[in-house]
Write a protein that binds this DNA or RNA. Structure first.
Lengths: 156, 156
DNA sequence: GCATTATCGTTGCAGATGCAATGAAGTCAA
DNA sequence: TTGACTTCATTGCATCTGCAACGATAATGC
C-alpha cells in the first residue's frame, strides 16, 4: 500500500497536524483527563455533571437553559446531568413563578461543599497548567480560545 | 467542611471562565461540531472514525498502536473505529510478518477517496478558522496547543 | 529451554451521548 | 378565544464510550 507513488493525490496537502479542531480536541483531552479522575473518584461525577455543578457553583442558581447558553453543553446532556446531580443530593429544583416550563436549579449544601472541594483542586490544577505556559502565553491562549468559542457559536 | 463563614462562600475564588480545560473543551466543541456534520452526513462517520481515517490518509499505513501513539486516542476507540472502517470498505488489514500480534492498516481506494474529499473540506474549514484568527495568532495557538498536548502526555 | 512479564488488540458490560420525537407551557395575531 | 408557532425540558432508542478482563504473541530473565 505504498502511496509513495508521487502522483500528488488530492487531499494530500491536508495537514492533519495543523488542523485546529484536531489540535484543540487533543489539548482538551490531555488537560481534562487527569482532572477527570479527580471528580470521578471523589464524587462519581461525569465530566458533564462536573461542568454543570461548576457553573451553578460559580454563577449561582439558574435554569437549565441558562446553563446551556453559558456552557454550550447540549440540552439533553444538561437535563441528564441535572437529574443525576439532583438524585445524589447536590442540587434542588424550584419552580419559577413566572414561567412554569422552567425550574431554578440551586446547589444544596452538599453541592456547595463538593464545588468548594473540587474548585480548590481545579484552581490548583489550573495554576499548574498556567505555570507551565507562563503568564503571557496563558493570557494569549485564553483570549484565542474565547474568540473561537464566541465565533464558533456565531458562525455555527 | 463547615465554612459557614458568612459572606465568603468556599470555592468562590475558582474562576470557571478561566479554567483552561473548560475553555479548551468549549473551543474544541465549537470548532469541531460543524465539521462533524460534514463527515457524518457524507460518510456516516463518527469523530473517532474520521480521525483514524485522517491519520492513515495523512501519514500512510500503520498499526493500531501507531495510531494510538500519534493521535492519543484510546486503543479501544481505535479498535472499534478500525473495525467500522474496515466493514465499510475504507481500509484493509495486512498481517505483519515480524509481529503477529499486529496488523498493518491501509486505506483502500474508497478510503483514500473519502480522505481526499474530507481533506479538501477540512482544509477549507481550517483555513476559514485561521483567517478569523490571523496568521500570527494562529501560529501562537498551534504552538501552545502542541505544548499542552506534549506536556499533558508527559505529566499525566 | 522454560517461566514470567509486557505488549497488542479485542470484547463484555455498564453507563454516557446524540438525535429525533414528545409533552408542556408560553407567545403572538386575528 | 382560537390556532399556529416557539421555547423549555425530558425521554426512547440506537450508538458510542470507558474500563476492566481476556487471549494471543512477544520479550525478558533464569
Amino acid at each position: 500500500m505504498n502511496r509513495a507513488t508521487e502522483g500528488a493525490e488530492p487531499g494530500e496537502d491536508f495537514d492533519l497536524g495543523s488542523f485546529l479542531p484536531y489540535l484543540l480536541n487533543q489539548a482538551a483531552e490531555a488537560t481534562s483527563s487527569s482532572f477527570h479522575t479527580i471528580y470521578r473518584e471523589a464524587y462519581g461525577m461525569t465530566r458533564t455533571q462536573w461542568r454543570v455543578l461548576a457553573n451553578l457553583g460559580r454563577f449561582g442558581a439558574m435554569t437549565a437553559r441558562d446553563i446551556c447558553a453559558l456552557s454550550h453543553i447540549e440540552k439533553t446532556k444538561v437535563s441528564r446531568a441535572v437529574a443525576a446531580l439532583e438524585e445524589r443530593g447536590f442540587l434542588t429544583r424550584t419552580p419559577d413563578s413566572h414561567d412554569r416550563r422552567v425550574e431554578i436549579l440551586s446547589l444544596t449544601d452538599a453541592g456547595r461543599a463538593a464545588f468548594a472541594d473540587l474548585g480548590r483542586r481545579a484552581t490548583a490544577y489550573g495554576q499548574a497548567l498556567r505555570r507551565r505556559l507562563g503568564p503571557e502565553d496563558t493570557a494569549r491562549l485564553e483570549r484565542l480560545l474565547r474568540q473561537l468559542i464566541a465565533e464558533g457559536a456565531a458562525a455555527g
